[in-house]
Nucleic acid binder design. Structure first.
Lengths: 256, 256
DNA sequence: ACCACAGGATTGGATATCAATCAATGACAA
DNA sequence: TTGTCATTGATTGATATCCAATCCTGTGGT
C-alpha cells in the first residue's frame, strides 16, 4: 500500500478519461472521502495532483471540478500535441534504429488487422496506443511524460464533443506516417501529422451543456472494490447507444 | 490570502531556482512547517506540487528532497527543450506578425545593450527571459506552461554543475536566431537552437557531491517576512566568489 | 568484525475542530 | 410580482493531536 493519494488520483484520472466523470462534475471532498473511505486530506492531495495535471480545476472555497476546457484550450492542446509529435518524428527519422522501425511497422500492422477483422474496440485502443509507442521510441522520459499529459487532456476533451463524424480517412494516417518517415521523407510526414490533428480538432463541436448522468459515487464504484474490480467499463452514452459499446473516440470506426 | 500550499510551493520553487536549496537537500516536513509557521499538512501539499513539477522527489517514509537529476535526465530535458523551441520557431516563422518580430528584436537589442554596458546581471536575466518571450509569442498557454516547466528544470540542473567555461560565442545566438527566422531561413535557425542547447549541455560536468551550505531554515528566511522581503538574493557560492555576485548561469559572460 | 534487536525519529494518515467563504433560502419592501 | 438584503447551511481551508508504519541508528552480544 503505497501512496493513497496517488492511487486515488490515478483512479480519478481513469474515471475522467473513461468519461464516467464529465467536465464540470463536482468533486466534493466529503463525498469522495466516503467513496474511497479515506480522510478528506488524502482526497485534497489527490485533487491537487489532478489539478496540476490539468484534469481538474480547484476554485477557492468552492471545491474541485472536472476541468472544462474551452475551445481555445482545445486548439492549444492540439497545437502542442502536433508540435511534440512533429518534433519526435524529426528525431526518429534521424536516430531510430531498425528495431524501432520494426516495432512501429508491427504496431501499425496489428491495428490494420484489428480494423480488417471488424474489432473496432481493439482498433480504438491500438490507435490511441500508437501515439504513445511513437513517443516512447524517442527514449526520452521527459518527452514521454509531457506527451502523455497532452494525450490525457485530449481524451478529456472528447467528453465535451459530439463525435459523430466520419473518420475513415484518418485510419491509415499512422501507417502512412511510418511509411513516409522510414523513407526519410520527413516534411510530408510532419505535414500529415499536422493534418491528422487538424482534421480532428476541426470536427470538434463543443456542446456547452454536458450532463453528468452519474454521481461520482456511481461513476467510481467499478474502480473500487479492493482494486480487483472489473475491467474498465466504457462510458454510458445516451445518444451514441447504437455504437455497440465502443467509446466515442476519434479513432473509432464510425460510419455516419 | 489564497492557497497557502500554492504560495509555499512557489516560495520553495524560487528558493530552488535561486540555488539556495540545492539538489539532495532534505525538505523535512517538521522543519518547513516551523519555518513557514503552518501545519505539516500544508507543507505536504506544497511538496506534492513540487514533486509533480519535477523539482522535488518524495520517497515513501523517508521524506522529500530537492530533485537530483542525473546526467541522463539533463540530456533528456535539454532534448525536450530543443524540440519545443524548434517547434515554436517553426510556428513563429509562419504566423508571427510584425509586432511580434519587433518585440523580439527589441528584446535582443536590450540584451545587447546590457552586455555592451557591462551589466552582466541584467544580461543574465534578459538572456533567460528571451526564451520565455520567444515561447509566449506563440500565444499558446499550454505550450508556455510546458516550456516554463522545462526551463525550471534546466535552472535546477545548474545547481549541479561547475559553470566555468567560456560562453562568449553563445551570447549572440539569440540575435542570430531572430535574424534567421525573420528572413524565413527556418532550417538554419532550428539548427542554431539545437547547437545552442547542445553546447550548453556539453559543458555540463556533474559533480556528484553538492554541499548544502545552508539549512532550509536559512535558505528560506529571505523569502518570508510577510512577503515584503528583500529582492531575491543570489546564491552564495564558495568557489565562484570572483564572479562579482553574478549567478553561475549559462548566459553569464564569464571569461575563463 | 558482524549480526540482531531495540529505540528514536520521521512520514503517512485519521479524526475532531474551527474559521472563512459561498450559495441557497426566505423575509421584506416597492 | 419582483427585487433586494440578511440569515443560515454547507463546503472548503487549515490546525492540532494522535496513532501506525517504516526507516535509521546505535548498542550489545557473539
Amino acid at each position: 500500500m503505497s501512496n493513497r493519494s496517488q492511487a486515488i488520483a490515478d483512479i480519478l484520472t481513469r474515471a475522467i478519461l473513461d468519461h464516467r466523470l464529465v467536465p464540470g462534475c463536482k468533486l466534493g471532498e466529503r463525498e469522495l472521502s466516503e467513496v474511497f473511505d479515506v480522510s478528506r486530506i488524502v482526497i485534497r492531495q489527490a485533487l491537487i495532483r489532478l489539478a496540476d495535471d490539468g484534469l481538474a480545476q480547484i476554485e477557492r472555497n468552492r471545491g474541485a471540478f472536472v476541468a472544462r476546457p474551452s475551445m481555445q484550450d482545445a486548439m492549444e492542446i492540439y497545437d502542442a500535441l502536433t508540435l511534440v509529435e512533429q518534433g519526435v518524428a524529426a528525431q526518429l527519422s534521424d536516430r531510430l534504429g531498425p528495431a524501432g522501425w520494426a516495432e512501429l511497422r508491427q504496431h501499425v500492422e496489428r491495428q490494420r488487422q484489428a480494423v480488417a477483422s471488424g474489432n473496432d474496440a481493439l482498433a480504438d485502443v491500438l490507435g490511441q496506443e500508437f501515439h504513445t509507442v511513437f513517443v516512447r521510441l524517442s527514449r526520452n522520459k521527459v518527452m514521454q511524460e509531457i506527451h502523455a499529459q497532452l494525450v490525457r487532456r485530449t481524451t478529456l476533451l472528447r467528453s465535451l464533443i459530439t463525435a459523430d463524424f466520419d473518420y475513415c480517412n484518418l485510419l491509415d494516417d499512422h501507417a502512412r506516417v511510418v511509411e513516409l518517415l522510414e523513407k526519410g521523407r520527413l516534411k510530408p510526414a510532419m505535414e500529415l501529422i499536422d493534418a491528422h490533428h487538424r482534421s480532428v480538432v476541426r470536427g470538434y463541436i463543443m456542446d456547452r451543456q454536458v450532463f453528468p448522468e452519474l454521481t461520482p459515487r456511481e461513476a467510481l464504484e467499478p474502480y473500487l472494490d479492493g482494486k480487483a474490480g472489473e475491467p474498465p467499463k466504457p462510458a454510458p452514452r445516451k445518444k451514441a447507444a447504437e455504437n455497440g459499446g465502443a467509446r466515442a473516440h476519434t479513432h473509432v470506426h464510425v460510419v455516419k
